[in-house]
């Protein structure tokens, strides 16, 4: 059953999935990940995907992020059908349009906080002066401007996730995907990170799609998608006042 309230207008759709299925092969056994799932996510929204473990949340994020391919159906991000792109062009598309925030932060250990945030801009060949301006602005915005020279192993979990948020936003993407971003943090730090993500989403006018079990995350959601056994069973939009 899908509950819908205030669907986004067609021009404001950032993510559109049509009848997307994903099946994994474990040896000779086909394991369904997603089954004919369709959904749309509006521009500049904070969307949360909820569901029990193994329901397909991460698979759904991977497909939206273009780091995995569906077995059937189409995935469109910012009007681009990802299925029509080759590997290099999908990499380029991700480099320009999609930011990632991982559960384990996934910062590059040999790079400082500054360099980690700068890295996506190097991939898109942004000029050095512009890189510096954007990196410092974002590090300040996420509250770790004074930690820019530190390596990830010299930072706390919360600080690392702040760096990851800055890294995801530095290229000014149309979409940020966050897979269980608070799972490795204590509840207090997790709450701070969620608040930061939401604040940054509002400030940057970027769409966030977050998978989480965390009720604190769900409280912030503009839209909540509930999936179970690879199927979308509920969509809830927060009523705008």
């Amino acid at each position: 059953m899908t509950r819908t309230s205030s669907l986004p207008p067609p021009g404001d759709i950032v993510v559109r999935l049509r009848d997307v299925s994903k099946t994994y092969l474990l040896g000779a056994v086909a394991v369904p990940g997603l089954h004919e799932l369709s959904l749309e996510i509006g521009r500049a929204t904070f969307s949360v995907i909820v569901g029990p473990s193994g329901s397909g949340k991460t698979t759904l994020l991977n497909l939206i992020g273009g780091i995995d391919r569906p077995s059937a159906g189409t995935v469109e991000v910012a009007g681009q059908d990802l299925g029509g792109l080759g590997d290099d062009r999908r990499s380029d598309f991700r480099a320009r349009n999609i930011g990632f925030i991982f559960q384990s932060f996934n910062l590059i250990p040999v790079l400082s906080a500054y360099e980690n945030v700068e890295y996506p801009l190097l991939l898109t060949r942004v000029a050095a002066a512009e890189r510096r301006r954007r990196v410092m602005a974002l590090l300040d915005a996420v509250g770790i401007g004074d930690q820019s020279r530190r390596r990830p192993n010299q930072m706390s979990g919360g600080q690392r996730q702040r760096v990851a948020i800055a890294r995801a936003l530095v290229k000014d993407p149309v979409l940020v995907l966050a897979d269980e971003p608070t799972a490795n943090l204590d509840s207090r730090t997790g709450a701070q990170i969620i608040a930061l993500m939401h604040a940054m989403q509002t400030r940057c006018r970027t769409s966030f799609v977050v998978s989480s079990h965390d009720p604190q995350v769900m409280e912030q959601a503009d839209e909540t998608f509930t999936i179970r056994d690879g199927a979308l069973i509920d969509r809830h939009c927060r009523a705008t006042s």
């Binding site: 990499s91 990632f100 991939l123 890294r167």
Partner: peptide, 8 residues
């Protein structure tokens, strides 16, 4: 991670 960030 670096592939997800867009490195070919």
């Amino acid at each position: 991670t670096i592939r997800a960030l867009g490195l070919r």
